[in-house]
Design a binder for these strands. Structure first.
Length: 210
DNA sequence: CGACCGATCGTCT
DNA sequence: GACGATCGGTCGA
């Protein structure tokens, strides 16, 4: 199979990530393409599910109350880099850091649709058959794309990891909004409508369909 | 279907 | 020393 021309992908510019409204950015990331090129292996997938984490005022955010630790420090940097952390000792969850320096906003990518490098994704995930679970759920997205905690802090304008816009946008009527998954501990903030999905897309995780 | 459970380890208390 | 922004398997209805 012929390798697609990656250079035709338009990287999202720094200005995309530097904006103040992380909710809006989370919605706009639907339809964008994550491209990774680690160790000469090219993979790409279109984002179909995201969650916004609204920094210091969001009880669900690791940076709630402006909590700075070694792990969360990258969220306080200028937008346009990756925040990757280990969840349950097993899963490497990929987030997009947004907003200006010292405002720790982030968008968790929860699901995507494979575009390039399906075979590599299957090898990385150990899946023997290609199905909707390949890039369904945040743990699987990272695993399939080869994203690891070692990549935390890496620029999203780098050659090995970036987010691209090919002009595709999901129809507004197909964008669903729900509460976030797995953040019950966040009390009233667990009720915020910060999760965005492409309706009817089989890669979307969870059961809340918006 | 839904409920439950084990895996596995860096991070923070 | 406890606990996850999870996943995949199993068990029972």
């Amino acid at each position: 199979m012929k390798a697609p021309i990656v250079s035709s992908f338009n990287k999202l510019p720094p200005a995309f990530y530097l904006r103040r409204d992380v909710i809006k950015i989370a919605r706009e990331l639907l339809g964008k393409i994550i491209v990774t090129n680690f160790d000469g292996v090219l993979t790409a997938a279109r984002i179909v599910e995201t969650e916004a984490y609204n920094g210091a005022v969001d009880k669900a955010s690791h940076a709630f109350g402006n909590r700075r630790t070694k792990r969360t420090e990258v969220m306080f940097a200028e937008g346009g880099i990756a925040y990757v952390y280990l969840c349950y000792g097993i899963h490497h969850l990929f987030n997009v850091v947004t907003n200006i320096k010292d405002t720790p906003h982030a968008v968790l990518v929860r699901a995507a649709e494979p575009l390039i490098g399906v075979e590599a994704m299957m090898e990385r995930t150990g899946k023997k058959i290609q199905d909707n679970t390949l890039t369904r759920g945040p743990g699987n997205v990272s695993k399939a794309l080869g994203i690891h905690t070692r990549h935390t802090g890496l620029s999203l304008l780098s050659e090995s990891l970036f987010i691209a816009d090919d002009g595709f946008k999901p129809k507004p009527s197909l964008v669903g909004v729900t509460t976030r998954i797995g953040v019950d501990y966040a009390a009233e903030d667990a009720l915020l409508p910060y999760r965005f999905i492409v309706k009817n897309n089989p890669f979307v995780s969870g059961k809340r369909t918006g």
